[in-house]
Every structure is written in C-alpha cells, then in structure tokens.
C-alpha cells in the first residue's frame, strides 16, 4: 500500500524518468540517424513534462485572470485615469485587485518551457538538415554504414 501511495502521488515523475530513459537509450543505441533525432525529441519532451509537473497546483486554474476580475479593474482604471491622471491610475490598480497565488498554476515554468519547445523544433530542423546532407554525401542514413564508407575511403 505504501508503494502504491509512493507511485500514485508521483506518477508524473516516474513516467518522466521512464520516457527520458527511452529517449536516452534511443540516442545512444539506435543506428538510424532519424531514429536518433526522434529519441532526442522524446528526451526533450520528457524534460518539459518534468518542468510542467513541478508547476502544477492542486485545485488551481490556468494562469489567466478571470474575466470579471479584469473588467472590474478596467472600469475602475478608466475613472481613475480621467480624474487623477497617471499616478492615480497606478495607485487604484494596486489597491483594488487581490489575487491569491494558490488559485493559479505557476506561470514561470510555462514561460521557460514555451521557448524550449520552439527552440527544440529548430534544433530538430538543423539535425534533419545535417541528415540530408549526409545522405547526399554517403547515400545512407545508417551510422554504421557511414562509418564503413569513411573507413574504406581512407
């Protein structure tokens, strides 16, 4: 029962480690270069899964404010803007919104991972370009065949 508890509360982390090891295994042991790149992408998504799992809070919602919260602030803001000018607007903004941090998931990890995904696809593109270049030179995308061609050419 204790084991079940240990697994079920942390199932995301267990699966993250399993997926990461699958990706690492593919990067090391596969001969095909495209398989290696797929393994690299799986490794990458595993890391992203880990980060997103860290930011989850039980009972919290997506990191976007509710509609009525925004509307209340905007209505107040418009009045303050006409009457007090810029500094008054700043004060009223800070005064009338109370946001509980436990109601929203952690936005910081989302930001970090958002850029990681897009950079990941461009690294995948560079890897695929190198694969095509190798196929153009050697006529093969299998690592051991390429190594043999290089050896026999010497």
């Amino acid at each position: 029962m204790e084991l079940f508890e240990a697994i079920s509360t942390k199932i995301n982390y267990w699966v993250y480690i399993v997926i990461m090891m699958i990706g690492l295994f593919a990067m090391i042991s596969k001969n095909n270069l495209i398989k290696k790149l797929i393994g690299m992408s799986i490794f990458q998504t595993a890391i992203i899964l880990f980060y997103v799992s860290i930011g989850v809070k039980e009972g919290a919602t997506i990191p976007i404010l509710y509609h009525d919260q925004v509307h209340a602030a905007h209505g107040d803001h418009g009045e303050a803007d006409t009457s007090h000018g810029e500094h008054g607007a700043v004060e009223s903004h800070e005064a009338d919104i109370h946001i509980n941090p436990d109601d929203f998931t952690n936005p910081l990890v989302h930001v970090l991972m958002l850029t990681a995904i897009v950079v990941g696809v461009s690294t995948l593109g560079v890897g695929l370009a190198i694969t095509q270049k190798l196929h153009r030179e050697f006529g093969s995308i299998e690592e051991h065949e390429i190594l043999e061609i290089i050896k026999s050419g010497k």
């Binding site: 495209i34 790149l37 797929i38 992408s41 998504t45 992203i48 997103v52 799992s53 930011g55 989850v56 919290a60 919602t61 997506i62 990191p63 976007i64 998931t105 990890v109 989302h110 991972m113 958002l114 995904i117 897009v118 990941g120 696809v121 995948l124 593109g125 695929l128 694969t131 095509q132």
Partner: peptide
C-alpha cells in the same frame, strides 16, 4: 490537463504539426 494551456497550444502547433512534417519531408 495540467493547466499549462500556452505550452499545450505550442506543442499542438509545433510538435504535432510542424515537426512531424519536417520528419516526413526528410524521410
């Protein structure tokens, strides 16, 4: 499901859409 909508949106556009197309083009 984990409330990371922005990350999910990016992954749907990038991972499921564009990177699969890149892989198929190379294949």
């Amino acid at each position: 499901g984990m409330a990371a909508v922005d990350v999910a949106f990016t992954e749907a556009a990038v991972g499921a859409g564009v990177s699969a197309v890149f892989l198929i083009a190379t294949v």
